[in-house]
Amino acid sequence: MTDTLNELPPLTQDFELGFTYTRSLGPVLSRFLTGLRDGQVLAARTRAGTLLVPPPEFEPVSGASIKELEPVAAEGTVLSWCWVSQPSSSAPLNKPFAWVLVRFEGCDGAMLHALAADAKEQVHTGMRVRVRWAPERVGNVKDIACFEVHKQ
């Protein structure tokens, strides 16, 4: 063998890794995602009386278990946003959109999701948005297709 290493052309191979996981949900996530399937947003009620969306399994500060969930309006306010001008194939929307952190009406915390908008100029912090439901829902965070501008 007289090959010197530098003379050998590189070899590449494309491949895909697939992870086909099914996850069990537990009591809180089960109720929240069942709610989404049924077209309803459920908030966690903390012992201090505040409402949290999305509902955590444990209270963020005290660590106490979340026991109560209750419905809230499927609308809220944008706390922060960014603009994706070139969505990847895995993005929730296939045209330019905003990622948003949405605080649901009367709740604490915020939920990350996509916001459908025609242009960056339509999006701003503090704007009102509402849930656009997916036409077919199975019990997944993607049952919320995205948020959309809520004109009152």
Binding site: Y21, R23, L25, L29, L33, P54, L79, S80, W81, C82, W83, V84, S88, S90, A91, P92, W99, V100, L101, M111, L112, H113, A114, T125, N140, V141, K142
Partner: peptide, 25 residues
Amino acid sequence: DPYYLQPLCPDSVSLAALQARAMLD
């Protein structure tokens, strides 16, 4: 988070951009 976040596949740059916006705001 595999339940609320990962299914939406938000990339690391987008999440940082949300933070940058919060800082600017």
